[in-house]
Amino acid sequence: MFGALLVAGIVHGLIIGLAAMAVTLVFGIARFPNAAAGDTMTAGAYAGFLAHRATGSLALAGGAAVVAAGAVSLLGYLLVFRPLARRPVASLLVAAIGVAFLIRAVLGLMFGHQQQVFQVPLAWPIEVMGLRIPPMDITLAAVAGVSLAAAFGVLYLTSIGRQMRAVADDPDLARVSGIRPVRVMVALWLLAGAAAGIAGLMLGVKTVVSPEMGWEGLLSAFAAAILGGIGSPVGAVLAGLLLGVAQEVSTPYVGFTYKIALAFAVMLAVLLLRPRGLLGRVEEVR
């Protein structure tokens, strides 16, 4: 029982972690809380759902989710966030909420508000070390693992990733180091959109696809981004796993209704003990 909940928690945690990564990347580099990240997830879920219905391939669904969510994310930057770049954070937050409503409205108009379900073949759980794990959970964990590896590969092994981390550290110094801000921002929004798209696809496969799904998942993503330390992608993924496992493992004790509240209690407790989050950094002053 505990083992099964742990596995479910890890899969759920990977979904939260990917969404939190999208939030924390934008927070660290563009410096505002992107409330449209949840609905970008939804766009990815619908694209993945359509691709899966047409082809039956989860890999193609993943590709479609990445492309669609990346495109939605980039459009949001080009049409809304770039023109507002120098505005106060509160303005950008409200603008992001507006973008979120717009994406949701467009998806509702295009696909209706009824819930859609991924038609995945039923399969017997696989037994691993006494744990009965649904094969789809293994597939989804692998999808998340590959996506995270790709995202961290971009961030830590490529020139544009290094530039993104430099802008996150110090945008003024990045400017006098010749780093072109627009290129970094385009890469940022594509990467954040792709991560949100994969999270949306996974959430859709695990639950249902509906226009509201991403918005409802946004709070967990924000919580994990804060818990992990704002601007820390590794922290966001670890915090997502922590919240996901805490929610699932606590279900037998506190019930389905309160598991989310319990996850937030975990977050508050960690933040009270460690205000900068798990991996957030304190600016050093010499």
């Binding site: 020139s159 290094r162 530039q163 981390r165 430099a166 996150a168 550290d169 110090d170 003024d172 110094l173 990045a174 006098v176 180091s177 010749g178 780093i179 072109r180 950094r281 600016e283 050093e284």
Partner: peptide, 27 residues
């Protein structure tokens, strides 16, 4: 590009990047 460089008073390195990355990141 013309050959002028600037070292600010504070915030003159990227703290989370390694020493080598601080040099590699210059465009």
């Amino acid at each position: 590009g013309l050959g002028i460089a600037y070292v600010p008073q504070v915030g003159n390195v990227f703290p989370s990047l390694s020493v080598v990355e601080n040099l590699q990141v210059v465009a």
